[in-house]
Protein backbone atom coordinates (compact mmCIF):
# COMPACT_ATOMS: atom_id res chain seq x y z
CA UNK A 1 0.00 0.00 0.00
CA UNK A 2 1.15 3.51 -0.72
CA UNK A 3 0.75 6.09 2.01
CA UNK A 4 0.51 9.74 1.13
CA UNK A 5 0.26 12.58 3.61
CA UNK A 6 -0.73 16.03 2.37
CA UNK A 7 -0.45 19.24 4.40
CA UNK A 8 -1.23 17.38 7.61
CA UNK A 9 -1.66 19.78 10.50
CA UNK A 10 -2.84 19.39 14.07
CA UNK A 11 -3.47 22.18 16.52
CA UNK A 12 -4.39 21.61 20.15
CA UNK A 13 -5.74 24.99 21.19
CA UNK A 14 -2.98 27.47 20.45
CA UNK A 15 -0.29 24.79 20.26
CA UNK A 16 0.68 23.50 16.84
CA UNK A 17 1.64 19.84 17.32
CA UNK A 18 2.09 19.05 13.62
CA UNK A 19 2.57 21.71 10.97
CA UNK A 20 1.79 21.07 7.31
CA UNK A 21 3.75 17.86 6.85
CA UNK A 22 3.92 16.27 3.41
CA UNK A 23 5.47 12.94 2.53
CA UNK A 24 4.75 9.63 0.91
CA UNK A 25 5.82 6.04 1.39
CA UNK A 26 6.02 3.94 -1.71
CA UNK A 27 4.47 0.50 -1.74
CA UNK A 28 6.58 -2.15 0.04
CA UNK A 29 9.13 0.31 1.35
CA UNK A 30 10.00 1.32 4.91
CA UNK A 31 10.06 4.90 6.05
CA UNK A 32 11.72 5.95 9.28
CA UNK A 33 10.03 8.75 11.22
CA UNK A 34 12.64 10.33 13.44
CA UNK A 35 12.72 13.25 15.77
CA UNK A 36 13.22 14.21 19.40
CA UNK A 37 10.52 13.57 22.01
CA UNK A 38 7.52 15.85 21.58
CA UNK A 39 8.29 16.64 17.94
CA UNK A 40 4.88 15.40 16.76
CA UNK A 41 5.61 11.79 15.75
CA UNK A 42 2.87 10.21 17.86
CA UNK A 43 0.33 12.83 16.83
CA UNK A 44 1.24 12.25 13.17
CA UNK A 45 0.86 8.48 13.57
CA UNK A 46 -2.46 9.05 15.38
CA UNK A 47 -3.74 11.02 12.39
CA UNK A 48 -2.50 8.37 9.94
CA UNK A 49 -4.35 5.71 11.94
CA UNK A 50 -7.56 7.76 12.02
CA UNK A 51 -7.36 8.16 15.80
CA UNK A 52 -6.85 11.92 15.71
CA UNK A 53 -8.79 14.30 13.50
CA UNK A 54 -6.40 16.57 11.59
CA UNK A 55 -7.00 20.30 11.82
CA UNK A 56 -5.99 20.49 8.16
CA UNK A 57 -4.70 18.14 5.50
CA UNK A 58 -5.44 14.62 4.42
CA UNK A 59 -4.07 11.09 4.53
CA UNK A 60 -4.39 8.93 1.42
CA UNK A 61 -3.84 5.20 1.39
CA UNK A 62 -3.53 3.76 -2.10
CA UNK A 63 -5.12 7.00 -3.24
CA UNK A 64 -8.14 6.58 -0.96
CA UNK A 65 -8.81 9.34 1.56
CA UNK A 66 -8.74 8.08 5.15
CA UNK A 67 -12.04 9.75 6.03
CA UNK A 68 -14.85 8.26 8.18
CA UNK A 69 -16.49 6.82 5.04
CA UNK A 70 -13.44 4.74 4.06
CA UNK A 71 -11.97 4.22 7.53
CA UNK A 72 -13.19 0.67 8.21
CA UNK A 73 -12.19 -0.60 4.76
CA UNK A 74 -8.69 0.87 5.06
CA UNK A 75 -8.15 -0.14 8.70
CA UNK A 76 -8.73 -3.78 7.83
CA UNK A 77 -5.53 -3.63 5.73
CA UNK A 78 -3.50 -1.73 8.34
CA UNK A 79 -2.17 -2.41 11.82
CA UNK A 80 -0.10 -0.88 14.57
CA UNK A 81 2.27 -2.00 17.31
CA UNK A 82 3.73 0.05 20.11
CA UNK A 83 5.20 -0.83 23.51
CA UNK A 84 3.01 1.93 24.97
CA UNK A 85 -0.21 0.07 24.29
CA UNK A 86 -0.93 -3.43 25.52
CA UNK A 87 -3.22 -6.38 25.04
CA UNK A 88 -5.57 -7.45 27.87
CA UNK A 89 -3.30 -8.96 30.52
CA UNK A 90 -5.83 -11.47 31.89
CA UNK A 91 -6.44 -13.12 28.53
CA UNK A 92 -4.13 -15.84 27.27
CA UNK A 93 -1.95 -15.18 24.24
CA UNK A 94 -4.21 -17.42 22.15
CA UNK A 95 -7.39 -15.68 23.33
CA UNK A 96 -5.97 -12.24 22.57
CA UNK A 97 -4.86 -13.26 19.10
CA UNK A 98 -8.20 -14.98 18.45
CA UNK A 99 -10.18 -11.87 19.45
CA UNK A 100 -8.11 -9.64 17.16
CA UNK A 101 -8.17 -12.18 14.33
CA UNK A 102 -11.97 -12.11 14.51
CA UNK A 103 -12.08 -8.31 14.69
CA UNK A 104 -9.94 -8.10 11.56
CA UNK A 105 -12.04 -10.74 9.81
CA UNK A 106 -9.19 -13.27 9.43
CA UNK A 107 -10.48 -16.39 7.67
CA UNK A 108 -8.54 -19.41 9.01
CA UNK A 109 -8.00 -18.16 12.53
CA UNK A 110 -6.33 -21.20 14.13
CA UNK A 111 -3.83 -21.73 11.34
CA UNK A 112 -2.98 -18.01 11.23
CA UNK A 113 -2.41 -17.95 15.01
CA UNK A 114 -0.22 -21.06 14.79
CA UNK A 115 1.71 -19.63 11.86
CA UNK A 116 2.40 -16.34 13.68
CA UNK A 117 3.26 -17.90 17.01
CA UNK A 118 5.58 -20.47 15.36
CA UNK A 119 7.46 -17.77 13.50
CA UNK A 120 7.76 -15.58 16.58
CA UNK A 121 8.73 -18.44 18.95
CA UNK A 122 5.56 -18.05 20.97
CA UNK A 123 4.08 -21.54 20.58
CA UNK A 124 4.96 -22.50 24.14
CA UNK A 125 3.19 -19.47 25.55
CA UNK A 126 -0.16 -19.78 23.78
CA UNK A 127 -2.04 -20.78 26.94
CA UNK A 128 -0.18 -18.35 29.20
CA UNK A 129 -1.85 -15.14 30.36
CA UNK A 130 -0.39 -12.19 28.47
CA UNK A 131 0.25 -10.28 31.68
CA UNK A 132 2.51 -13.08 32.93
CA UNK A 133 4.94 -12.81 30.01
CA UNK A 134 8.33 -11.07 30.02
CA UNK A 135 8.59 -7.77 28.16
CA UNK A 136 10.37 -9.52 25.26
CA UNK A 137 7.57 -12.09 24.99
CA UNK A 138 4.87 -9.41 25.29
CA UNK A 139 6.58 -7.45 22.56
CA UNK A 140 6.49 -10.46 20.24
CA UNK A 141 2.81 -11.05 21.05
CA UNK A 142 2.12 -7.41 20.17
CA UNK A 143 3.97 -7.94 16.90
CA UNK A 144 1.93 -11.11 16.23
CA UNK A 145 -1.25 -9.12 16.85
CA UNK A 146 -0.08 -6.37 14.50
CA UNK A 147 0.53 -8.91 11.71
CA UNK A 148 -2.45 -11.18 12.39
CA UNK A 149 -4.48 -9.65 9.55
CA UNK A 150 -1.55 -9.75 7.08
CA UNK A 151 -1.58 -5.95 6.85
CA UNK A 152 -0.28 -4.12 3.80
CA UNK A 153 0.52 -1.04 5.87
CA UNK A 154 2.11 -1.35 9.29
CA UNK A 155 2.86 1.40 11.79
CA UNK A 156 5.55 0.57 14.30
CA UNK A 157 6.24 2.90 17.19
CA UNK A 158 9.58 2.01 18.80
CA UNK A 159 9.13 -1.75 18.22
CA UNK A 160 12.29 -2.72 20.10
CA UNK A 161 12.20 -0.22 22.96
CA UNK A 162 13.07 -1.85 26.31
CA UNK A 163 14.17 -5.12 24.67
CA UNK A 164 17.52 -6.74 25.33
CA UNK A 165 19.90 -6.75 22.32
CA UNK A 166 19.17 -10.40 21.52
CA UNK A 167 15.38 -10.04 21.36
CA UNK A 168 15.75 -6.67 19.64
CA UNK A 169 17.87 -8.28 16.95
CA UNK A 170 15.37 -11.15 16.61
CA UNK A 171 12.52 -8.68 16.03
CA UNK A 172 14.50 -6.68 13.46
CA UNK A 173 15.52 -9.84 11.60
CA UNK A 174 11.96 -11.12 11.72
CA UNK A 175 10.63 -7.88 10.24
CA UNK A 176 13.25 -7.99 7.47
CA UNK A 177 12.34 -11.55 6.55
CA UNK A 178 8.60 -10.95 6.85
CA UNK A 179 8.88 -8.01 4.45
CA UNK A 180 10.70 -10.14 1.91
CA UNK A 181 7.87 -12.66 1.83
CA UNK A 182 4.89 -10.30 2.11
CA UNK A 183 3.64 -7.09 0.55
CA UNK A 184 4.16 -4.67 3.37
CA UNK A 185 4.74 -0.95 3.68
CA UNK A 186 6.12 0.14 7.05
CA UNK A 187 6.25 3.44 8.86
CA UNK A 188 8.75 3.06 11.67
CA UNK A 189 9.13 5.58 14.49
CA UNK A 190 12.25 4.80 16.48
CA UNK A 191 15.01 6.30 18.58
CA UNK A 192 17.29 3.38 17.79
CA UNK A 193 19.43 4.72 14.95
CA UNK A 194 21.04 1.38 14.13
CA UNK A 195 17.57 -0.10 13.76
CA UNK A 196 16.55 2.73 11.45
CA UNK A 197 19.70 2.31 9.34
CA UNK A 198 19.06 -1.42 9.06
CA UNK A 199 15.34 -1.35 8.28
CA UNK A 200 14.50 1.93 6.56
CA UNK A 201 14.74 2.79 2.87
CA UNK A 202 14.15 6.46 3.57
CA UNK A 203 13.96 8.74 6.59
CA UNK A 204 12.12 11.89 7.48
CA UNK A 205 13.29 14.01 10.39
CA UNK A 206 10.74 15.95 12.41
CA UNK A 207 11.32 18.79 14.80
CA UNK A 208 8.80 21.09 16.50
CA UNK A 209 5.98 19.57 14.46
CA UNK A 210 7.64 20.11 11.09
CA UNK A 211 9.62 17.96 8.69
CA UNK A 212 13.10 19.46 8.72
CA UNK A 213 14.88 16.98 6.49
CA UNK A 214 14.43 13.78 4.52
CA UNK A 215 16.36 11.31 2.41
CA UNK A 216 18.12 7.98 2.63
CA UNK A 217 20.39 7.34 5.62
CA UNK A 218 23.54 7.89 3.56
CA UNK A 219 22.17 11.02 1.95
CA UNK A 220 21.41 12.57 5.33
CA UNK A 221 24.73 11.53 6.87
CA UNK A 222 26.66 13.01 3.94
CA UNK A 223 24.53 16.15 3.76
CA UNK A 224 25.18 16.98 7.40
CA UNK A 225 28.81 15.87 7.29
CA UNK A 226 28.53 13.37 10.11
CA UNK A 227 29.87 9.83 10.59
CA UNK A 228 26.62 8.06 11.28
CA UNK A 229 22.87 8.54 11.68
CA UNK A 230 23.05 9.06 15.42
CA UNK A 231 25.38 12.03 15.02
CA UNK A 232 23.20 13.34 12.21
CA UNK A 233 20.14 13.05 14.43
CA UNK A 234 21.89 14.95 17.22
CA UNK A 235 22.98 17.68 14.85
CA UNK A 236 19.45 18.21 13.54
CA UNK A 237 17.83 17.91 16.97
CA UNK A 238 20.22 20.45 18.49
CA UNK A 239 20.42 22.75 15.49
CA UNK A 240 18.52 25.60 17.20
CA UNK A 241 20.88 25.49 20.19
CA UNK A 242 23.94 25.60 17.94
CA UNK A 243 22.53 28.51 16.02
CA UNK A 244 21.51 30.30 19.19
Amino acid sequence: MKLEVKNLTKKFGNTIAVKRINFQIEKNSTLGLLGPNGCGKTTSIGMMLGLITPTEGKVFIDGINLDPKNRIRLLSKMNFASPYIELPKKLTVKQNLEVYARLYGVKKISSRINEMTDELNLSNFLERKTGELSSGQKNRVALAKSLINKPNLLFLDEPTASLDPDVGDFVREYLENYKKKNELTILLASHNMKEVERLCDKIIMMKDGEIVDSGTCNELIQKHGRKNLEETFLKIARSKNELG
Binding site: I72, L75, I85, E86, L87, P88
Partner: peptide, 17 residues
Protein backbone atom coordinates in the same frame (compact mmCIF):
# COMPACT_ATOMS: atom_id res chain seq x y z
CA UNK B 1 -11.31 -2.83 31.44
CA UNK B 2 -10.10 -1.62 28.02
CA UNK B 3 -8.65 1.52 29.57
CA UNK B 4 -7.08 -0.26 32.54
CA UNK B 5 -5.49 -2.92 30.31
CA UNK B 6 -4.21 -0.18 27.94
CA UNK B 7 -5.98 -1.98 25.09
CA UNK B 8 -7.92 1.11 24.10
CA UNK B 9 -5.78 2.11 21.10
CA UNK B 10 -5.70 -1.46 19.75
CA UNK B 11 -9.48 -1.50 19.84
CA UNK B 12 -9.99 1.82 18.13
CA UNK B 13 -7.56 1.09 15.27
CA UNK B 14 -9.30 -2.21 14.53
CA UNK B 15 -11.85 -2.06 11.71
CA UNK B 16 -14.85 -1.80 14.01
CA UNK B 17 -17.75 0.63 13.77
Amino acid sequence: EEIWSRNFTNLFIAPIK
